[in-house]
Write a protein that binds this DNA or RNA. Sequence first.
DNA 1: TTGAAAGCGTTACCAC
DNA 2: GTGGTAACGCTTTCAA
Lengths: 357, 357
Amino acid sequence: MTDGANTRPARVTAATIAAHTGLSRATVTHVLNGRGTEQRIRRDTQERVIETARLLGYRPNASARALHTGKTGNVALIQSLMGAYLPERLLLGLTEALGENNMYLTLAEVPDSVLDEQSYLPKILREHTADGLIINRIVGIPDTFVEAVNSLNTPVIFLNVNRPSDTVYPDDYNGGKLAANYLVSLGHTRILYVGPTIGTDYHYSQIDRQRGYRDAMKEAGLPTQEFSLPPNPETEEQIRNDSRVPILRSYLEPRLQRPTAIVAYEMAESMAVLHAVNQLQLQMPQDISLVMFHHQMDQRFCVPITTLCNGMQQVGREAVNLLLDKISAPGTSFPSRVVPIELLRGVTCGPPPSLCR
Amino acid sequence: MTDGANTRPARVTAATIAAHTGLSRATVTHVLNGRGTEQRIRRDTQERVIETARLLGYRPNASARALHTGKTGNVALIQSLMGAYLPERLLLGLTEALGENNMYLTLAEVPDSVLDEQSYLPKILREHTADGLIINRIVGIPDTFVEAVNSLNTPVIFLNVNRPSDTVYPDDYNGGKLAANYLVSLGHTRILYVGPTIGTDYHYSQIDRQRGYRDAMKEAGLPTQEFSLPPNPETEEQIRNDSRVPILRSYLEPRLQRPTAIVAYEMAESMAVLHAVNQLQLQMPQDISLVMFHHQMDQRFCVPITTLCNGMQQVGREAVNLLLDKISAPGTSFPSRVVPIELLRGVTCGPPPSLCR
DNA sequence: TTGAAAGCGTTACCAC
DNA sequence: GTGGTAACGCTTTCAA
C-alpha cells in the first residue's frame, strides 16, 4: 500500500510492458517500432501493447538503441564559444534539419587554450559520443588540431570557413558583387565600401566581400572607394576619444563628391555609418543609401537596414545534409558547398540624390 | 596485405585492447578508468594497456557507458528556436558548467505548433535521451505542456521566466532599481523610462524592470516619466512612416524640461534613443545619459552603452547547478534562483547638464 | 503470430 | 593482481 500506486517504478522498459501484457519483449518492440502489422501481430495485441506503454509512461532508452545500432543520433557542434559566431538562425537550421532525420545537436565548447595545446583533443572528441562533427568558424585552426580530428574515425565538416572540401559557407564574394550591383542598378556611381581593419587572423569573408565589391565596380566601370574602420577602442581613454565616427564623417561630409551609397561589412560598420549620417543630418535613403551584411533582417535597429543575408539557416541545413552524406559514405571527401547570399530589402536604399533633383 | 595496415578495424573496443595485450577486459577497463593502481595492477601492465589504447585510437563508447550507468551525460535545452532568446553567453555558461561535470548540452528545437497541440510532446521528450531538461524562456507556456513535462520522470528546470521554483532568471526588478539609482547618484532628476508596448504575451522582465525603476524613483522622491515604444512596424508602408523615433524625439526636444537621462528596456529602445538623440544634435553623455538592459557590453554599437548586464553566463552556470541538484535529488523542488544584474560602465552616462554649467 | 536468444560495449562484483 | 561473468535495454534473426 505504501509502495503500490504512488511510487512509479523507476524505469519502465520494454520488458516491463512485456510483463504487464504477458507478451515477449520482441513482440513489444515490434509493435512499438511500428513493425507490428508487418510482423502480422494481432490488431488487439498491438493496441494492448500501445495502451500499456502509454499507461506506464514508457520512453525508449536512446543509449540502449544507440549501443545496438552503433549510431548515437547526435551530432556535435565544436567551437570556441568565447567570441563565437552562433546566430540563432544557424542553430535553427541545424536543429531543424537534424530533427527531420531524428537526430540532435550536441553543443561542445572548446576552450581556445585547448586548440593551442598540441594534439590535445577536447573530451567530446576523445570518446565516441556523436555520429558526426561540425566545426564552426574557428579562425586560424591549427593544422595539428585538424589532423587530430581527421585521425578520428568520425565524419567531420567545417562551417563558415572557406576550405575546398567538406565545408559549408556563405558566398561572400558574390554577396559583395550583389551589394555593389544592387546599388549600381539604383543609379549610384560613388559607392563606398566600409570594412574592418584586416589584421593577421582575418576571416575569409573580410577578403571576399571586399573582392566582390571591387570586381563588381570594375565591371560597371566605376571607381572604388574604401574605408577601413579602425578596430574597437579598448581603454576608456580610447573610447572617449573614439575617432572612428568622426573619420567616417569626414568621408561623408563633402557636399558634391561624397559617396551616395555605402556597403558595410557588417553591423559594427553599419552602426558607425548610421551615427555619422545622423550627425551630418543626412536623410537616409534620400541623401545616402546603405546595405550591410548580416544573418537576418534585424528589426532591432529601428531602421530596417537593407541586408545581404548570409542565409545561416540554409547554411545549417546544408551542413546537416553534407554531414549525413559523409556519415553514410565514411572516408569520402565532398566538395564544399557555397550558400548564396540574398538581398533583403529594408528601407535604407534608394536612388542617389542627383537623380532625384 | 590489402586489409592489414590501411584498413583500421571499424571499432576499437576495450575487448580489442584486451586481445592485443592478452589481458582480460576487466583489467583493461580498470586501467583505463584510472582504477589500475587501486586494483593493484602492475605498473608495466598499466602502461602497456594505455599505450595500446593510444596506438589503436581507442575511444570509449558513451552509449555503452550510459546504458550501464543509467546516465546519458546529456542535458537537453528545450525552446522554440524561432524567435529564441539564446545569447552566446548563456550557451557559454551552460556548456562550461556542464563540461566541468563531464556533461554535454543537447539542443532541441521545439516548434511552436507543438506547444499548442494538447499533450503532444516533442520527440526528445518522448524518449530517454537526456538526464535533465532545461526549458528556456517559453513565454506563455501552456499548462498542458508543463504538466506533460512534469509527468516525465526527468528533472526539469526553467530558464529566464519567473516561476517560484526550479527556475533561474535575472533579477530584473533590482536591475531596474539599480539603473535608476545609478542615474540618480549621478545627479539626474528627470529620468525617462523607455520600454516596449506591453502586449498580452509579455515577458516578466517588461514588468519587473519598469517596477524597479518606479520604486527607485519613488524612494528617491523623484517623479517618473515613461514612454512605451510602439511595436516594430510591419508593412513597408508602416516602416516608411515609422513614427517611433519622431515621437521619442518629441519627448527629448524641449530644452528645459527634457529628461537628462534614459533607462531603456533593451537594445531596440536604445537604438531609437540614439537615433533621436543624434537627430536632435544632442551630445551623449553631456546633454543626456543612457543605460540599457542587455546580456553583455556590446561593442558593435560604436558607442559602448552603459549596460545593465543580466549575467547570462552566470544564469547558465546556476541553471546547471540547479539541474544537477535536481538530478541527484529527483522529485525535490528547489526555490528559484535569481541572478543579480550588474552595471557595466560604458560611455553613455555622466552628470546631468545642469550640474555641469 | 509469437517467443527465445544473441549481441552491442561498458561497468562492477566476486572469485581465483 | 587478474580474470570470469552478469547486467544495462534494445534490436533483430530465426524458430516455432
